[in-house]
């Protein structure tokens, strides 16, 4: 919120002081010891799959550095499920995975899963995730104004007995597109309340809106926010640099599970 407010002020100031105020510079960076990066979202009913890459020095060439010798295991109830190195891309979403298994995840709320990734350089990443229950979307409402623009109101009931974290995402027309809105929230101010998330008058008549409410772990909430903060700090003169709060130990990344409900509405 602060940063948005600030940008309102800075933009007119920059306009006021004309152009040509940006130039390319060379920055000498210290040597970086590359670390493993994992991204794994377990989803009940879906096969196990994840991506293992590694971090690189900032000005290295921009290709994705796969770790071909990485060995990946997911542990659950004493079982070690091996994920094989089989890189492939889902063209529709433009998303790639490096390791997959044919086994389907059948976890229930409360179940705990572990992750173990090792490679030939002796690097090791571990992590845990606890399967969360889905928080249902109770209602999606909208209201048009005189200009035929509508706002959207999504309502859910927060559980008062535990600290909850949410990720709220809306897409227009298809989940294969860039999200229309995407943010995280907690029940810090709304514990136990029937909570509504509103929007501005952003939508037109007959728009198809896909609303997703993810009930997320704190470690995922922290990771997403730290990623946002780190990205904001690069390019914001007022931002403080932020350390990435990974949910895994020994590297960067996220190992979590997805518990979400999705509703599609057409704004008639």
């Amino acid at each position: 919120m602060n940063r948005k407010l600030l940008s309102y002020f800075i933009v007119p100031l920059l306009l006021l002081t004309a152009c040509d105020l940006e130039k390319d510079i060379e920055v000498a960076l210290p040597a970086h010891t590359s670390q493993l990066v994992v991204e794994c979202y377990l989803q009940p009913g879906k096969t196990y799959k994840l991506t293992v890459t590694e971090s690189v020095s900032y000005f290295d060439a921009p290709q994705s550095p796969f770790v071909t010798d990485a060995e990946v295991y997911i542990t659950h109830n004493g079982r070690r499920i091996k994920l094989n190195y089989q890189p492939h891309t889902y063209q529709s979403a433009g998303k790639y995975y490096t390791h997959t298994s044919t086994e389907v995840m059948r976890g229930k709320p409360g179940d705990i899963y572990g992750l173990e990734v090792t490679d030939g350089k002796g690097r090791k990443v571990t992590g845990f995730t606890k399967v969360l229950p889905v928080v249902p979307i109770e209602e999606v409402e909208w209201k048009f104004n005189e200009k035929e623009k509508a706002y959207l109101l999504t309502t859910y009931q927060d559980d008062p007995n535990v600290a909850n974290y949410y990720r709220f995402v809306t897409h227009i027309d298809s989940v294969g597109t860039k999200p229309d809105r995407d943010f995280t929230t907690s029940d810090n101010l709304t514990n136990g309340k029937r909570t509504s998330i509103g929007s501005a008058y952003d939508y037109a008549r007959n728009d198809t809106i896909i609303v997703s409410l993810y009930h997320i772990e704190k470690q995922y909430y922290d990771f997403l926010n730290s990623v946002d903060d780190a990205q904001d700090a690069n390019g914001n003169p007022f931002g403080q640099p932020s350390r990435i709060k990974s949910s895994v130990q020994g590297g960067f990344g996220i190992f979590t599970n997805l518990a979400y409900q999705r509703k599609t509405v057409v704004l008639h």
């Binding site: 979202y41 890459t53 020095s57 900032y58 989940v175």
Partner: peptide
């Protein structure tokens, strides 16, 4: 000033939010 020394790629759940994550070291 703090500047990132490294980066990694972050795809996110659906892959549409694919982005570069800067890694900061020394303050």
């Amino acid at each position: 000033y703090s500047l990132p020394v490294a980066r990694f790629a972050f795809q996110d759940v659906q892959g549409q939010r694919s982005s570069v994550v800067p890694v900061y070291s020394e303050r």
